[in-house]
Design a protein around this nucleic acid. Structure first.
Lengths: 252, 252
DNA sequence: AGTGTTTATCGTCAGGCAGACGACTATGAT
DNA sequence: ATCATAGTCGTCTGCCTGACGATAAACACT
């Protein structure tokens, strides 16, 4: 039964963003504090209305720039500069997800390297990077002993879906490099995998795997000792986007 | 910048369906003929407006039932009866995708076993199963020499995305069984993979792989000769949804 | 009944890849 | 000088896969 333009219920359409990064060996997401009801004072994912003349991807890129200053990447171009990877995640449209009106939210997933600091319209106290486990634990107590309120709306579900997407996608793609600065070492890339998956990986097998996969990493010639220890080769992300065979996530 | 309920542009929200099945060794999709402008007389994917009190998944399941009579499966339950697998695919919201108004379409992907016949509101001439290559070839000539018009709206893109999702998802999940009747043989399952991927697979290695993966197939005890040749064991889909290690799609 | 065709199923073998882990190297810190 | 840290190169073993031989059980002929 294709479109019947004579009558349709009006919807509001928003984009919500799951912006992930790796800080201090932990997978973190960007959260903003709500300044107005509903869920006033609670943490939520950044997002906003899609404008009348805007594509969904444009709206997501605009929101991402407003919240973080990051430019979104053209998905066809390999991740190289400080731009972020941005892709559509899923769409959430439960009739009761927003108590005010019927809102359909097209969630997007962004992966960014570690950033200096978040900015929410210039107000830093209303935006922060929080470890995803902290944002996802429902009604417990945070590390500072403060009670933890769950995220507003259905944002806990959206965040969980985004985290799972990131976890599975770095298995068979080179997307983990989106968490890294333009030049990085094999060890830094390994710590990204370890943070996202929450596991420890064997440095020797990891090194063999990533350097042996054609197109994954391109040596820049430089070295660095910023992690301490023996100097490590620096790499850029290569052109390969699909890893075959994939990097398998260890069981349990 | 979270929700500002004071002003937002109104959208129409629809669900479009990519319904795939395997018929006569070919991957086919359900297409309906448009009865009214725009794109009158052209083929399109089935779909329709989301109702005011409906969840997106509900709307997709309702459309699926209207077009095919299929009940959608609870995703948590393994595919066993004649119900179809149904999952959200992606959302398409280009401002110009519908010339009449701003329409955001949440596309869903359904995988169904071979069905007796399509029905579009009782009118069979306005619905058909067509091989996906036929629907996706732009402006060529079909097998009957008739000129082929491309699908309406951006439905060629949606269909292509759905096909790619199905092709990749049967690699690492047991979803290929959604194309099979409740009981099926290893050879029938192999022909599903061959049709979806468009490749030939070695029957011996395929048999070893699927029967050796715990939880993928459960023998029912019966046998059948409906494919000719030596009687083959009948299986049901097992509880496993994730295949580890995956069934790798051959290169090239 | 015999022969060929079709499909199913079991087995064998070699190559590739991953996990476990030993060994060595090159820095900075004490 | 010694230690701690991190990076890099090898080795070995087991598992999985692709290629492919062989056998089994039905049906369609003659």
């Amino acid at each position: 039964m294709p479109y019947d333009p004579s009558a349709f219920p009006p919807f509001a359409v928003t984009v919500d963003l799951v912006v992930l990064t790796v800080r201090r060996h932990a997978l973190c997401a960007l959260a903003v504090r709500r300044g107005e009801p509903p869920f006033q004072g609670r943490w939520a994912l950044p997002g906003g209305f899609v404008r009348a003349d805007e594509d969904l991807a444009q709206a997501a890129a605009r929101e991402l720039a407003e919240e973080t200053g990051l430019r979104a990447h053209d998905p066809a171009v390999p991740v190289q500069d400080n731009g972020a990877h941005l892709e559509q995640l899923a769409t959430y449209g439960d009739p009761k997800r927003d108590p005010r009106m019927r809102v359909v939210s097209v969630a997007h997933l962004a992966l960014a390297p570690d950033l200096p600091a978040p900015r929410a319209g210039g107000d830093a106290s209303n935006a922060r990077w929080a470890p995803v486990e902290e944002l996802l634990q429902q009604g417990g107590y945070g590390r500072d002993g403060e009670p933890v309120a769950p995220l507003a709306f259905d944002h806990a579900q959206i965040l969980a879906d985004g985290v799972e997407r990131a976890r599975s996608k770095i298995e068979y793609s080179s997307l983990a490099t989106a968490f890294c600065p333009p030049e990085f070492t094999v060890g830094e890339l390994r710590r990204v995998y370890e943070a996202v998956w929450g596991v420890a990986l064997d440095p020797r097998n990891f090194h063999r795997k990533v350097t042996g996969t054609p197109g994954f990493l391109v040596p820049t010639g430089g070295t660095t000792t910023r992690q301490g220890g023996r100097p490590a080769q620096l790499f850029r992300a290569g052109g390969a986007t699909l890893l075959n065979p994939p990097m398998l996530r260890p069981e349990v």
